[in-house]
Write a protein that binds this DNA or RNA. Sequence first.
DNA 1: TAGATTGTTAATCGATTAACAATC
DNA 2: TAGATTGTTAATCGATTAACAATC
Lengths: 218, 218
Amino acid sequence: MSSDKKISIAVIKRLPRYYRYLSDLLNLGITRISSKELSSRMGITASQIRQDLNCFGGFGQQGYGYNVEYLYQEIGRILGVDEKFNVIIIGAGNMGQALANYTNFEKRGFKLIGIFDVNTDLVGKKIRDVEIMSMDDIEQFISKNKVDIAMLCVPYEHTPAVADRVARLGVKGLWNFSPMDLKIPHDVIIENVHLSDSLMVLGYKLAEKYRQENCEEA
Amino acid sequence: MSSDKKISIAVIKRLPRYYRYLSDLLNLGITRISSKELSSRMGITASQIRQDLNCFGGFGQQGYGYNVEYLYQEIGRILGVDEKFNVIIIGAGNMGQALANYTNFEKRGFKLIGIFDVNTDLVGKKIRDVEIMSMDDIEQFISKNKVDIAMLCVPYEHTPAVADRVARLGVKGLWNFSPMDLKIPHDVIIENVHLSDSLMVLGYKLAEKYRQENCEEA
DNA sequence: TAGATTGTTAATCGATTAACAATC
DNA sequence: TAGATTGTTAATCGATTAACAATC
C-alpha cells in the first residue's frame, strides 16, 4: 500500500522514465500492459517495475496487468504534473531561450510565466508570448506572482548570488545549469543539471572503448 | 591498484564531480588535501573517496593525503580529457547554439569542429569560428574529418534517423538531448540528457514539500 | 620517532531480483 | 474453473561505510 515510508531517490528518478514509456504506449493505442511486457520494452526487470509501483500503491490487477491510461495518470499525479508549477527563467541567453521554447515542459505541469535578463537590449522581446523582463523588476514580479521554480541560466560566477536572491523572495525550487553544486542557506529544493558531467561520462566510456579496440588490434 | 576489474558506473559518474572540486581547490591555491577534508567539502564520506580513487590506483600518500594538482591531472586522464575528442553539433537551434557557446567543453577535451542544420538560412553563419553547414554535407565532412562525438539537438521525431545516419558514418559517441532512450543497432556509446526527467524530479520533490507544509498547517 | 592518513579488508546497509501465495 | 499476473516477502547482490594495519 502507499503511505509514508520514505521512498528512495533511485525509485523517484525512474518515475519520469515510466511516465515517458507509458505516454508512448498511450500514443500507440495500447490500453493494458503487464510488468513483463513493460520490462522487455524498458530493459529492466519486471520485479523492479512491480516493486517500484508498489511504493505508491497497487495500480495493477492480478491476471490482467496495468491499465496504461490509469497508470500514466497516477504516475503523473505522483510527479506533480497536476500541480501546475509556475516557472521563471533567469538568463535569456541561448540556454534560457532553449528552455523557454521547450513546449513539452508545459505539458508536464510547468508553466513559464516570466523570463529575466540583465541585458536591457533583450527586455521587451517575447518568446512564445512570454516577455523578457529586466532583472531589476524581479522583486516586484515575484511579489505579485506565485513563482514555484526558477531555472537558472546565468553565467557561472553569478549563479550563487542569483540563487540567493530568488530564494529570499520565496521561490522554493531551483533548477541550476551552472557546473557547480549549488548550496544556499535557505529552505529550497535544488536540482542540478550537470551537462559537462554527463559529457565527461560519455568521454570516459569512449576513451575506454578506444583503449579496448587498441588492445584487440595489438 | 589499477588494472581491469570492471569499475561500476556509480563510481564513474562521481569522477566529473571530483574533477570539479579539485579544479576549485587548484584555483584556491590549495596544494594538498586529505580524504577527510575533501569529504566535508563534498558531503560524502572519506571512505567513499578513498574507495573510489583506489579503483584507479593509489594516488595518495599515507600521512600526507593527496596532491591536488596530481590528482586533478590523473582524474582528467581517466576521463579522457587529454584525448581531445572531436565533436559536431547537429541541430543549430537554441540548444545547439547554447552548446556551441559552452567554451568549457573545450577545456574538458571536447573540440567543436562542425555544426549542422537542415535550415539553409543558418548555413554559413558562424558560432565561435565554427561554421554552420548543411546537413546535406555531413557525409562528406565526416569522411574528411575524424568525428568522435555528435551532439544531437534535433527535434524529437528526427532524432532516431539522425542518430542512425551518423552512426553509420562511424561516429562512436552520441549525446542525445531528445526525451527518449535512444537505441540504435550499432556499436555506439549513447549518453542521454533527459532534461525533462530532471525537471520532473524537481517537481516531485517540490510537490512533496508542499504536501508536508500543508500537513503541518492542518 | 610520533602523528597523520592512506590503501584495503571486513561489516553494514540498501537496492535489486527471485519466488510464490493471493486473486483477478 | 484455469491461466495469468499482481502484490509482497525473502534471498541475493552490490555499493557504501567502518575499521585498522601499513606506511609516509
